[in-house]
Amino acid sequence: MTVEGQLSYPKEMALAAAGPAVNLLLAVLLSHFGTRWELCYLFGGVHLVLGLFNLLPILPLDGGMLLWNTAAWCIEPYTADRVSAIVGLFAAMLLSGAALWMLLCGGSPFLLIATLGLLRVPLQQIGLVKLRQTG
């Protein structure tokens, strides 16, 4: 993206919310047509899961961006960095634990792979925040 840092906080929040909003809207819409056509349930379910996944408060997902922008708007950006790092790390750890439990219960390993990938950015954030404080 080349237009970095040009949008104001509310506008960027609207941008981040647009994706999941469409997902959830389509999920509700499709599920209502499920009684007529079975496949609607499948696609509605996929939209629901994708929308909820994007709303996770982990950067760089939409949920993470919403959280960051809210914090930056209400307080200031550097605190927002710290807040989103902590929340993101906590959420990613929680999800990884849940995914591991699911795998041990006999479920699919894919969620674990996805949640371990989600850990990457919060860990980077933690690293960077630490560096800036000492350096």
Binding site: S31, G34, Y41, L42, G44, G45, V46, V49
Partner: peptide, 10 residues
Amino acid sequence: FSAAGRAIGG
């Protein structure tokens, strides 16, 4: 996924 869709379908 079908079950997820059905859950919000009501």
